[in-house]
């Protein structure tokens, strides 16, 4: 495929509507079942779930609004940068656009991810345990799993809000800046960003809820995501080339999101992985041995999230609430 200026273009995947459709379908089925069960009060306990869910949304409404507004930033940046670029340079290449967006999304996800985990998931259950809220709820006709899942649903709702806001901002920013010729490209990028965000936030929700259910102190529950997200990739990056191993990156979630971003948006990687590639090219050795395809990463993240949700639920069912 040749682009407008005659360069060979990487073969970008078109937006994976099937994957998108499956994810949206699953979410819609959940919402539909939930709505029917809630409205008809088929199972009384599900109403308790909704009571917790609605309360958590109300409690977090300021935080949710702030995070949703922050999620618009990538779109605003893209709009401003590319408006400036087209004014100064008269135009830009879609490859540059993809790489740039990939960088922004990686950077955004890294900090938003940590902030989201700290603000919502990894401290939520611990705080409820520490300040006696959970104990108080348990004295009412509310079961432990209902409390946990009421909260998880509110976190998932927040994740959807963030993902939609981020994708919409990029879509609108892109449509305002780019030539209408690229509308399909922009739709594809916005769609993939939605998928990456939703997968990232689902995984971070699962990790945060797990840490929050297992630990009693907020310090560890906050430190672990920061370690996995920021410190671990940095440590791996600073290891001498000859002893460097990529396997610790399997525990670093920024790696997965970068890889998805690379596979779906830029194909060159956004941050860390592109540095590795630069290293390997420079030294003429192939040090980047973790070649996980996008579908592998999606599967890993979904299986990990489901497993962590199940473990958290089972753990909270059996553990003492001080």
């Amino acid at each position: 495929m040749i682009n407008l200026i005659g360069m060979e273009m990487p073969n970008y995947p078109t937006f994976e509507w099937i994957l998108f459709g499956i994810i949206m379908g699953i979410i819609s089925i959940f919402v539909f079942i939930f709505y029917i069960v809630y409205k008809r009060r088929i199972i009384e306990i599900n109403s308790s779930l909704m009571v917790i869910f609605k309360r958590k949304l109300k409690e977090d409404k300021i935080k949710i609004t702030i995070f949703t507004l922050i999620s618009i930033i990538p779109g605003v940046i893209i709009f401003l940068i590319f408006t400036l670029m087209s004014t100064l340079m008269g135009g830009f290449d879609i490859i540059q656009v993809r790489i740039f967006i990939s960088y922004i999304i990686n950077f955004f996800l890294l900090y938003l991810g940590i902030a989201y985990t700290i603000a919502f998931t990894s401290t939520g259950i611990i705080n409820a345990k520490r300040n006696g809220t959970l104990s108080w709820f348990l004295s009412k006709p509310i079961r432990r799993w209902e409390f946990l899942w009421g909260r998880i649903l509110s976190y998932l709702f927040t994740s959807i809000m963030i993902s939609v806001a981020c994708s919409l901002s990029i879509l609108i920013g892109g449509l305002l800046t780019f030539d209408p010729l690229y509308i399909e490209e922009i739709l594809s990028i916005a769609g993939f960003i939605f998928l990456i965000n939703i997968l990232a936030l689902l995984t971070l929700t699962a990790i945060g809820v797990f840490l929050s259910s297992v630990f009693r102190k907020t310090g560890l529950a906050i430190f672990i995501p920061i370690f996995m997200f920021m410190i671990l990739p940095t440590i791996v990056g600073f290891l001498p080339i000859v002893v460097r191993s990529e396997w610790p990156l399997l525990f670093s979630f920024s790696y997965y999101f970068e890889e998805l971003s690379s596979a779906w948006i830029s194909q060159f990687g956004g941050g860390l992985s592109s540095i590795y590639l630069a290293y390997s090219e420079l030294l003429g050795i192939d040090i980047f041995t973790l070649n996980l395809s996008a579908i592998h990463i999606v599967l890993i993240l979904i299986i990990l999230s489901i497993s962590l949700f199940i473990i958290s639920t089972l753990y909270l069912q059996k553990t003492d609430i001080p």
Binding site: L134, S135, L138, S139, K318, D320, I321, P322
Partner: peptide, 9 residues
């Protein structure tokens, strides 16, 4: 009391 209300096992 926490055992009575089901918070501790």
């Amino acid at each position: 009391i926490k055992m009575l209300i089901g918070s501790l096992f």
